[in-house]
Amino acid sequence: MLSEMSLIPQSPEGLKSGFVAIIGRPNVGKSTLMNELIGQKVAITSPVAQTTRNRLRGILTLPQAQMIFVDTPGIHKPHHELGKLLVKNAQNAIKSVDLVLFLVDGSVAAGRGDRFIEEFLTPSPTPVILGLNKIDQQPSEAKDIAILDNSYAEMATPHNWPLAKFSALTRDGIDNLLSLLQQHLPDGPYYYPPDLVTDQPERFIMGELIREQILHMTREEVPHSVAVSIDVVEESPQITRVLATIYVERDSQKGILIGKQGSMLKAIGTAAREQMQKLIDGQVYLELYVKVQPKWRQSRHLLADLGYRVDKD
């Protein structure tokens, strides 16, 4: 359950604290890593690229450190206004944090997408740690592992970037990563109450949980042309009533989301409701509607209405 905002206590002497942007290509495991570090689901995950759309902060408080992780959209070449906004927000995150965790897929060699990110991180004065995720998926032969690792070492060495290897899935190497992050954070205060795990309101997380189930259940048929608006949240001691609208761009997508005799929409709603009940630690009644909003990803006005704005530096 998300903690309620409370008073921020005096920080202990020698506390390390700061904001850490998790930067990388789509599908390198940024959201999975954040959830694992926080110890609670605050970011949705999906095999579909560009799952993360809004800058989401996850807060981890340790005895001698408070790390505020900023999960950013995967950096890619944008093809529409939504894509441009996502990449702009990822770039802005780099300028406004104390440390960058440049996350790569350690199960494959460094590629053009990784080097593209390296190029725009290079001029930034913000310290960078290069994190090799997915080491559980590396080949078994030591010589093959060395080839992969060396492709990233060649990227990190000219910039003096420390390098960490780990798996967000198995937690192997996570403690070493946390130790490295803590070393590179400045001394500072608590920015948030120690029991808080995210600064996003529950309403936002609810919308993301619905979108996550759509991504999982529809995959290629309805990839990125979906947005979710939480229209009503009514709380009572017995149950929380949630009404939400799912926006798509075409009638055919609406048909896929509803499914035969409403079967797909029911499945999405059931799975999302179960996640919401874990979020609020209580019973949830969820009602979903599907609405066609043509070319919403191309319209700055509609993007703003649906909550997608350029984050301030």
Rank of each mutant, 00 (worst) to 15 (best):
S3E: 08
E4N: 13
P12V: 02
K16E: 05
S17H: 06
G18N: 05
V28Q: 05
G29Y: 03
K30G: 02
L37F: 07
G39I: 04
I44G: 15
T45P: 09
S46D: 08
P47G: 09
R57L: 06
R57A: 10
Q64N: 14
A65F: 04
Q66W: 04
F69C: 01
D71H: 07
H79W: 08
E81Q: 15
V87T: 02
K88R: 08
N89P: 05
K95V: 02
S96F: 08
D105R: 06
S107D: 02
A109M: 09
A110V: 08
D114E: 15
R115W: 07
P123F: 09
V128N: 03
L132C: 01
N133C: 13
D136W: 10
P139V: 05
S140Y: 15
D144Y: 14
I145G: 02
A146Q: 11
N150W: 05
A156C: 00
A156D: 03
S167Q: 07
D172Y: 08
D175P: 10
Q182I: 11
Q183I: 06
Q183L: 09
Q183P: 12
P189L: 00
Y190Q: 13
P193V: 03
P194Y: 15
P194L: 13
R203D: 00
F204L: 02
L209F: 10
I214Q: 06
T218R: 04
V222S: 02
S229C: 14
I230W: 01
L243S: 09
G262S: 03
G262C: 01
S263V: 01
A271R: 15
M276R: 02
K278G: 04
V284T: 15
V284L: 10
V292M: 02
W296I: 08
R300N: 14
R300S: 11
Y308F: 04
D313R: 09
